[in-house]
Amino acid sequence: MTSPTTPTTSRPVQPGQVLIFDADDTLWEMNLLFERVIEDYLDWLEHPTLDRAEIRRILDDIEAANAVAHGYGSKVFLRSLGECLEHLRARPATARERTEIDELAVALVEHRVELLPGVAQTLDTLGSRHELRLLTKGALDEQQRKIDASNLAHHFAGIHIVAEKRVDTYVELAATHGLEPGRTWMIGNSPKSDINPARRAGMNAVFIPNRHTWVLEHDEVDPDDDGVLRLDAFTDLLAHF
């Protein structure tokens, strides 16, 4: 069985491929910021009977429901933190409590971006060999602000912000922009949003795990799928593309 981070190909592919990049937790750290806020939130709650793991499970369930109903992003996340508080305390959150929750999440609200190591240099080199595109999901204005803050937009022939990444998202993207699926690669950290739906749409995929990947983005990646290249780090792309 193939190790999750063992490349399934050893030689570079031909130039002229289309490389589509995920943004959050592929180009820059994002869920790590959410995790830091959650840790501070759990400290702040100081629940008298439930331990941190039990509260986290409740919060995960609330986040999952809100993702379906309201999408993604810091505003939805803050909503989930408030609803979790109300669930645990069996009453509405006070204005002061909501203000304190907002203060815990300043880094998210300000859309700070922390590029992963070697991202800018790697994109610069890959852009001389292939067509690069960006495909990210979430709130349009929020994702655009992060892209602007990253100073990476000039690397991409197209930037696509969508509400969700499903198989039809990839099919439509290929049809709209004349992409040949067999020469197109989706590169990301999320099995659920990046790897598996892209493969079902006939594209290749590069799986670069991030240990901070959001639990709701977890899924199994077929270890025997030769259409998935597994790498340890973003800079490893240079050895294959």
Rank of each mutant, 00 (worst) to 15 (best):
H130S: 12
D51M: 04
R79K: 10
A90H: 15
A139C: 02
A198F: 04
E63S: 06
T213E: 12
W214Y: 14
A105T: 10
D141V: 04
R56W: 05
T9S: 11
E172G: 04
P92V: 03
L108V: 03
V18C: 12
N210V: 02
I55R: 04
V76R: 12
T184A: 05
D148R: 09
E142C: 01
V171T: 14
L42E: 09
I161A: 01
A149V: 08
V206M: 01
L19R: 09
D168Y: 03
V162P: 08
M30R: 12
A157G: 15
E110F: 02
G158Q: 15
T125A: 11
T235S: 12
F241L: 04
A120R: 15
P181M: 01
D148P: 06
A149D: 09
A153K: 15
L135P: 08
R133F: 08
A23N: 05
A201G: 13
F207K: 00
P197Q: 02
R56Y: 10
S128Y: 13
T8V: 05
I38D: 12
T26D: 03
F234P: 07
N189R: 06
V37C: 15
L140N: 07
A65L: 07
R145Y: 02
C84D: 01
Y41R: 11
R91P: 00
T213S: 08
R145E: 10
A67L: 13
V171L: 07
F241M: 05
L59T: 09
D232V: 08
L123A: 09
S150A: 09
A163S: 14
H160M: 03
H111C: 05
V109D: 08
V119A: 05
L123H: 14
N204K: 13
L59H: 15
R98Q: 11
G138I: 10
D224Y: 00
E164W: 09
Q144T: 10
R211V: 07
G73K: 09
Q14Y: 08
V113I: 13
I58D: 10
